[in-house]
Design a protein around this nucleic acid. Structure first.
Length: 205
DNA sequence: GACGTAACGGTTGAG
DNA sequence: GACTCAACCGTTACG
């Protein structure tokens, strides 16, 4: 798919309006929402997106209401369909160089026995021990704790700090997976391909 | 107008 | 402690 040059997107700074917060981290998207480039949306926003979708609110409405780009709404909902989790993936770090042989063997066996769908989801069911929703709820509390700790530690990097008033988003609770949710998207796999391409370019191939 | 997707720059953290 | 690399993020714009 074609894409305009970055200069078209972000003529001057390489990004849209920067929000003049004391933190100097926030940026404003086209919908007027505040975001931190490279950082996940706050958990309660992600929750809200999923819940609204669950209630039949259309993605475009969610996008406008929460002032989150529709691409992001789409991504979050697709991820939710795929994994059953609203949480962002683990950012940063490196994968272990190699899984222990036993683990690899088990994964192979598991793949053979379950030749469909997302292995990760199956793995979660098999080894995670908890049901998705239950896990999600507990994780939320955990996340909330972690978030506030995180905020104290480094408010500078938190969109919560920029958005400030969390009481604006009183919504909190568990979300059940709509049965109509089915299917998958592969949009973010492109990133992996892209990086591979970049790496091979760097190596001169 | 709504939606899915591609391409991008940025952030993060293990190694 | 500084650096690299590969994972993720949310954005915009195209189709």
């Amino acid at each position: 798919m074609m894409r305009p040059t970055l200069a078209q997107n972000y003529p001057r700074t390489g990004f849209p309006l920067e929000v003049s917060t004391p933190l100097g981290q926030g940026r404003v998207n086209q919908l007027g929402g505040v975001f931190i480039n490279g950082r996940p949306l706050p958990n309660h926003i992600r929750h809200k997106i999923v819940e609204m979708a669950h209630h039949g609110v259309r993605p475009c409405v969610i996008s406008r209401q929460l002032r989150v780009s529709h691409g992001c709404v789409s991504k979050i909902l697709c991820r939710y369909q795929e994994t059953g989790s609203i949480r962002p993936g683990a950012i940063g770090g490196s994968k272990p160089k190699g899984a222990p042989a036993e683990v690899e063997k088990r994964m192979e066996e598991f793949k053979r026995d379950n030749p469909v769908g997302s292995i990760s989801r199956l793995m979660r069911c098999k080894f995670g021990g908890k049901m998705e929703e239950e896990e999600e709820e507990e994780d939320d509390e955990d996340m909330e704790k972690k978030e506030s700790e995180e905020n104290e530690r480094r408010t500078k990097h938190s969109i919560e700090g920029i958005l400030g008033d969390r009481s604006k988003y009183p919504w909190h609770g568990s979300v059940s997976l709509p049965s109509s949710f089915n299917g998958a998207s592969s949009s973010w796999r492109i990133d992996a391909l892209r990086l591979r391409l970049m790496a091979s370019k760097r190596r001169g191939h």
